[in-house]
Design a protein around this nucleic acid. Structure first.
Lengths: 212, 212
DNA sequence: AAAACCTGACTGGTTAGTCAGTTAGTTACC
DNA sequence: GGTAACTAACTGACTAACCAGTCAGGTTTT
């Protein structure tokens, strides 16, 4: 069993650890750092998560559900609106700049074959690509999107752009991420729209992109 | 002074360290790992590079000149051919899969404010964005590329795609990186070419019209 | 012989995880 | 409504392992 106080503390530790690890990486963040920032002893961190790896997994659990709630908030098949959603997500980075790049940092740190986190991160990546490809395929079937585009390749491209932008945000968070992404999204919609290529795109009622 | 034997050893150490660090990160790779792989003592590594940071800087020096030779091999202003060049670079990843992602890994590991490598990595990123933006701007002036595209935003987008694809390669190197990139490049050329349909949906109000 | 190259042994600092014991809160029972 | 038994939460002190860098001396190259 866990008390109210216990689960509160747990959540706080996850929040603190997420922030620190997103900045300094898992290897660059010590349990003592996290404990100090949260105002508890280092042993308390171990008490709650067993091992450091347990803590990282808890962080990933929290992030997975959070990010899922953002990108798939309109259900598993937003169609072409996915570009608008992505655009809004990037625009919201400014609200929690410390958390941006967490996944990229963890991936970069855990690519070694022997690393315990690798399978989880790889599965997570594949799942997101599959979901993206699926909604793109549906868009094609509904006639919203051109049929001569490979959905899987496009899904890989979208995810590459997003994670690459996170990396860029890490090196210099003053880049115009929101504006760049809003232009990118508009361009994608214009080019992928089923009537694109001829005389321009008549944007449907869901194709609008928020301005960065 | 340095002898033939000395500089050979130095180069070998850089090669070994590059491979190991691209996989396991700087913090995840010990001097002993590198020394063992190269068949020397750990103290020999310190002898050649002074400190671990010195070694990482030597690695970055080597990578900088190597990558520069690839992407800017046709001079500083390849124009729209930049997309073909990038496509070829990604296709060549299969030849040296262990080295892909080195820069991304180092960036992800060194985002902390206190980190000594951060300024160098940030400067490197900015330089590449500037170079890309410059050649895109030149393309616009020459009339090869549409005038209603922000060169800097496009440069950021291109670099984000590339580094994001490297990250994806890290988690699963069996993704169709080359095919995805060649499709991406073709799409970019088709959409950015000055004769591409420029009416319809684009970001921002008031599309500027290219001269001539 | 001088200089460059390299080693084995060592050191000081760091860090994840252990452990014995303390405190706070909750339930059970009279 | 008081207290005894129990459990979750937490601490301070410790340890074993690890790792970058030092050093005194040996070997190879020029």
């Amino acid at each position: 069993m866990s008390s109210r106080r216990g689960s509160d503390r747990r959540e706080e530790l996850i929040a603190v650890a997420t922030r620190l690890i997103a900045r300094n990486g898992s290897r660059g963040t010590t349990l003592a750092d996290i404990a100090h920032e949260a105002g508890v002893s280092q042993a308390a961190v171990v008490y709650h998560f067993g091992t450091k790896e347990g803590l990282v997994n808890a962080i990933l659990d929290a992030r997975d559900s959070f990010e899922d709630g953002l990108i798939w908030r309109d259900g598993p098949d937003p169609g072409m609106r996915i570009f608008g959603i992505i655009s809004e997500i990037v625009a919201s980075w400014a609200d929690h700049p410390d958390l941006v790049g967490l996944l990229g940092v963890l991936i970069a740190e855990n690519v070694g074959d022997d690393d315990a986190l690798r399978p989880r991160l790889a599965a997570n990546y594949r799942l997101t690509v599959d979901r993206l490809a699926t909604t793109l395929r549906s868009s094609q079937k509904r006639g919203e999107m051109r049929g001569d585009v490979d959905p899987q390749a496009k899904a890989i491209e979208i995810l590459a752009y997003l994670s690459g932008l996170e990396l860029a945000w890490l090196v210099s968070s003053d880049i115009p991420a929101a504006a760049t992404t809003s232009a990118w999204a508009a361009e994608q919609i214009a080019n992928l729209g089923s009537d694109a290529g001829s005389s321009g795109t008549t944007a449907g009622p869901g194709n609008s992109v928020p301005k960065g």
